[in-house]
Simulated scan of single mutants.
Amino acid sequence: MAKDNLTAVLYGINDIRLEQRPIPVPKENQVLLAMDVVGICGSDVHYLVNGRIGPFVVEKPMVIGHEAAGTVVQCGKAVKHLKVGDKVAIEPGISCRMCSYCKSGSYHLCPTLTFCATPPDDGNLARYYVHDADFCHKLPSNMNLEEGALMEPLSVGVHACKRANVQIGSVCLVLGAGPIGLVTLLSAKGMGASKVIITDIVQHRLDLAKQLGADQTILIEKGMTDDQIVAKVKQLLGEEPTISFDCTGQEQCVRVAICATKSGGVVVLIGMGKFEMTIPLAGALIREVDIRGVFRYCNDYPTAIEMVKTGRVNVKPLVTHHFKIEETEAAFEMAKSGKGNPVKILIHANPNWTPSK
């Protein structure tokens, strides 16, 4: 049995360390995974820089990482749907399965939900990791583990599009072309949206969005007013969007989403911003614009995997940089600084991984 379980542990603000930890033993409903790929999420960087996100505070050393995929190396005795050698995408939130939310299908709202790398729960940036088997999704043969790790962010986009009821003919506005904005774009196009326009303050992100299928892009320049942005959206689309997604959490973007959306349309708020904002709520009410929130995902991994498996969605262009687990500190430094224009940074925990030529 291997003994190397190099693990990335966040000790506090700007203090991430690599250390050896015991290889965990799976319980009867769990699988032991040889971890392959873990993506860096904005929340991981936020914990590193600020030590907290809202009420979730890093008070003790916490293993980082939650966008992940690995290979099954041992199964608990009650696990029937997976076997040794299966490659899986890891859904990082585990619910109680017993409360009214879980039983009604909204397990992501479970009050006792545990989530990888959300204090006080450890994440999975390690050589080996155990996870409940029913939250491990087997990957089809035509998907690799890098794509598997990207099923976590893609599921956010899928969930948002399901909340908005995106369908053939939908006209969508996406505010923010970071990783979540880009997967929302991919999901909307994959579900049949006829037009998607996306905004950002950084041109290289918009260039990638165009590559991924955006019909129009808008570079938001400093000093642009809400009305100017709304007018630009309508001008480029030739009509008002029926659905708008805010993927930034910025107050101006929330206002623009509400003002730009066609009467009777839907605004979905994905980005986590200030607890309180000033928004044109009366304008939304008299035009019957629905405002819907999104919290991660729920029963969306199978959809995300199917979209990639069938070629409806290609997540590979999102990946811009690769690091070995031994280079974790450098990977997070790039994520913090933005140098090199990273979009999605992947860390490879498999000691046998070598960069593709």
Results as ranks from 00 to 15, higher is better:
residue 312 R to W: 12
residue 246 D to R: 01
residue 347 I to M: 09
residue 119 P to E: 06
residue 279 I to V: 13
residue 56 F to G: 03
residue 194 S to T: 15
residue 21 R to L: 08
residue 56 F to I: 06
residue 202 V to D: 09
residue 292 R to K: 15
residue 85 G to I: 11
residue 248 T to H: 03
residue 296 R to W: 15
residue 35 M to I: 07
residue 199 T to E: 03
residue 127 R to N: 09
residue 107 Y to W: 11
residue 236 L to R: 11
residue 255 R to E: 11
residue 96 C to W: 04
residue 136 C to F: 03
residue 213 G to Q: 04
residue 143 M to K: 03
residue 57 V to S: 08
residue 252 Q to E: 12
residue 21 R to N: 11
residue 288 E to M: 10
residue 200 D to H: 06
residue 227 D to H: 12
residue 348 H to P: 04
residue 262 K to P: 02
residue 17 R to D: 11
residue 69 A to H: 01
residue 74 Q to H: 15
residue 70 G to E: 02
residue 339 K to N: 13
residue 26 P to Q: 06
residue 290 D to I: 11
residue 69 A to W: 00
residue 57 V to T: 12
residue 288 E to I: 12
residue 303 T to E: 07
residue 308 V to C: 10
residue 353 W to N: 04
residue 84 V to A: 07
residue 200 D to A: 13
residue 100 S to W: 14
residue 269 L to P: 00
residue 311 G to K: 12
residue 116 C to N: 09
residue 343 V to K: 03
residue 224 M to S: 08
residue 79 V to W: 00
residue 147 E to H: 05
residue 135 F to L: 11
residue 304 A to M: 06
residue 248 T to V: 08
residue 74 Q to M: 15
residue 56 F to C: 09
residue 38 V to Y: 00
residue 261 T to I: 10
residue 308 V to S: 01
residue 131 H to R: 06
residue 173 L to I: 06
residue 43 S to C: 09
residue 19 E to I: 06
residue 135 F to Y: 15
residue 54 G to P: 07
residue 227 D to G: 14
residue 175 L to K: 02
residue 84 V to R: 06
residue 205 R to S: 03
residue 22 P to Q: 13
residue 66 H to A: 05
residue 221 E to N: 12
residue 17 R to K: 13
residue 21 R to Q: 13
residue 338 G to L: 08
residue 196 V to R: 00
residue 123 G to M: 02
residue 184 T to C: 09
residue 203 Q to V: 09
residue 1 M to E: 15
residue 274 K to E: 15
residue 116 C to V: 05
residue 140 P to M: 11
residue 312 R to K: 13
residue 29 N to L: 13
residue 42 G to Y: 03
residue 133 A to R: 00
residue 149 A to F: 02
residue 77 K to W: 11
residue 324 K to L: 13
residue 106 S to L: 15
residue 340 G to L: 09
residue 202 V to I: 14
residue 310 T to Y: 07
residue 13 I to T: 14
residue 246 D to F: 03
residue 147 E to G: 02
residue 130 V to E: 07
residue 124 N to P: 08
residue 246 D to W: 02
residue 278 T to S: 15
residue 321 H to S: 09
residue 188 A to C: 08
